[in-house]
Amino acid sequence: MKIDYYAYHSGMTKWNAGFKVLLAVGTLLMVIVFNRVRISLFAILVMSGLTLIAGRLPIRTYAHYLTIPFAFMLLSSVMIAVDFAGTPKGDFNFSLWFFYVCVTRQGIATAAQVLLKAFAGMSALYMMAFSTPMGEFICVLQNLHLPGLLVELMHLIYRYIFILLETAERMQTAAKVRLGYGSLRQGFRTFAGIAGNLFILSMQKAERYYDALAARGYDGKLEFLREQRPVSAGQLAGAAAYIAAIIILGRFTR
């Protein structure tokens, strides 16, 4: 949950949330629509630059988070590159009993392209995630006129997640002190005990939390004061230049 912490302490926290979301989602869309290596590279460059320089995220932290999706990406990319066939029809073929593992140059190129696209996607998502507190993100969704019920649940769930996490952490520490994770079998039992207890606790808390909402006049509508943060002319100009660059890279170069 460290990403959440960084979102409140980023150099870009005070930027307009809608602007950041639009920039990230716009980048995501352009990257997957154009599907070209140079655009992916350009997006990685700009998005990472924003996160590291404007957002002042330590580079080691950023690198650590970029490796999270690594396992999935690696396995999936390998599968995209590799093909199984009865005859050796790839550019490189490995015989396995009665079939061949074939790798074509085309396959490798596709895999690399997908990998880069995924990294570009992650860099755009991270630009937003590492700089936008969740509450503001939810407000952006609210402005997009998502169903009120959904938005309200998101607000509450986000808040409750931290309460439950804190409780779970305390329970886990207590279990560790009592050596509750000794063997795998014991570990499973302890895990389930914590999870079961946490569930009961969360249901009990829900009752009291409703009282607290009602005590302040909650009447089926969750509304908060929001700080207006205008987008600066510089930010707008930068975004326009960035989008123009991507379109030029995508359409007018070969």
């Binding site: 649940l153 409750y160 439950l164 969360s202 409703y210």
Partner: peptide, 11 residues
């Protein structure tokens, strides 16, 4: 039920 459902989601 609002807080109950939200709690379930958080859980």
């Amino acid at each position: 039920a609002v807080t109950l459902v939200a709690m379930a989601g958080a859980y």
